[in-house]
Design a binder for these strands. Structure first.
Lengths: 247, 247
DNA sequence: CTCGATCCTTGACCCAGATCAACTGGACCG
DNA sequence: CGGTCCAGTTGATCTGGGTCAAGGATCGAG
């Protein structure tokens, strides 16, 4: 199951998430120290990486693939509370129990550190602590933005918001067509989308069909999405779509 | 408007939030440095402390009173994304624009620092940076817990969840009656509750009445709440109410 | 004491999205 | 080639909470 170390990123310097992950700010000597304690793990689509409530003895970054953070009530209602894309950080220094389930939705590779060496390193390396604070503040902003989506947006707006977010994060990797066109593959099933949006999968399906019918998106198969006009999608999402974005 | 400095907390050592705020971990010498750059500001109930989009030239902690963080769409729909109680931190080091409105819901006193001296101090004082990371991670957990409330809970469960949260945080200040009884004053109007819960104020009012009729809570006036059985309230909130809490 | 303002409650009706249920279309397997 | 999973779509119906509207309670000002 675990991919042999040498297959992935022989050196941090060549790592695809080098400039976005917790290690982004590290100097070469700091990187060398991290390199000594890091190890890779990979998981298959559908596998649960961490169970809510379990003891977590490692932290790490998503190198490739997509995972979700979900919370579940006793009666089975579930809410996705985070989407983990490459460079996102998993785990909380200074706490043992995991508060959420972490599930791989695609095959995924993670760059891990055992918790105590990482915490030690963090205390000695302001660059890491600082970057982690920055990333956590960003996640907090994202979580709060999502609260607006969950609390106040209609189903149609929710779907459009999700497509915007996935498309935008994905687009930083694959530069897309000209003038506001965007193309990407959904890494989520309709059910996972529903869990993210606080909807049922039927409503997700209906609204996807409606957006297609209205020409806001095109679908090839179930998962491949083409957004002919990003501005229009953002408008449907209820975000102020004023140009500022393309800058 | 601003309360003269000497009125509030002549020395940090006597500050009511000394052990919970960003400064919690500071040694006496570090505290002395903070003391030099801190200043107090107070605001009246209803006043907007920070406007979304404005330049923010200070950060600070809530010393007393309650404030809210809200996000608003162009068409006026608003969602509260955070509740700021004493010891909570406002502002983001390393960013200029404020992403949300911050509004005082009661008279409030804040302990402020101009941003650049604070950032400088933070870089030189790991105790502060570390504590801020810890607080931010806690807020992220709280935000994610709230996503479950917004996305999956019914109106009745939402109200009960809010009462639990307010009561619990408030209870750490005023220890309450025996065996699961809890008494507190709501610091929020029905409308503010609705904005927090993603509901309308009418629904909030109806559900409050329903909880009263069902004996889950008692009301004296509009704002004074008596919870005879906290376990029952938590059950209504849909949280696993198993005993663990009273430990 | 009345006036207005603010906050809250309650009722009547409606609709977006949930629920229940049937069906399609690929992928995989014997 | 049937068979049987899934993942997704679509239809019919139901309902929780939104919307609109009409008061009620409290309070400070004049």
């Amino acid at each position: 199951m675990n991919v042999p170390r040498h297959k992935i990123a022989p050196h941090c310097a060549e790592c695809p998430i080098r400039h976005k992950a917790v290690c982004a700010r590290c100097e070469t000597d700091e990187l060398a120290r991290l390199e000594e304690i890091k190890y890779y793990r990979s998981f298959e689509a559908g596998q649960t990486i961490i169970w809510s409530g379990d003891k977590m003895d490692f932290v790490g970054s998503v190198v490739s693939g997509v995972a979700t953070l979900t919370q579940t009530m006793e009666d089975g209602r579930t809410q996705m509370v985070g989407l983990l894309l490459p460079s996102d950080f998993v785990g909380r220094p200074g706490r043992d129990g995991a508060p959420y389930d972490v599930v791989a939705t695609t095959d995924i590779v993670m760059c891990c550190f055992r918790k105590s060496p990482f915490e030690k390193m963090m205390n000695e390396t302001p660059h890491i602590a600082h970057r982690l604070l920055e990333m956590t503040l960003d996640e907090l902003d994202a979580a709060r933005e999502w609260m607006l989506v969950l609390g106040r947006k209609t189903a149609r707006e929710k779907i459009a918001s999700l497509l915007c977010i996935i498309g935008r994060r994905d687009a930083s990797l694959t530069p897309d067509g000209p003038n506001g066109t965007m193309v990407f593959d959904l890494p989520l099933t309709r059910e996972a989308m529903a869990d993210y949006l606080g909807l049922t999968l039927e409503t997700v399906s209906r609204q996807m069909s409606a957006l297609r019918k209205d020409g806001v998106i095109q679908l090839e198969g179930k998962r491949h999405v083409i957004v002919p006009d990003l501005g229009q999608l953002m408008e449907v999402a209820g975000d102020d779509s004023d140009g500022g974005f393309y800058g």
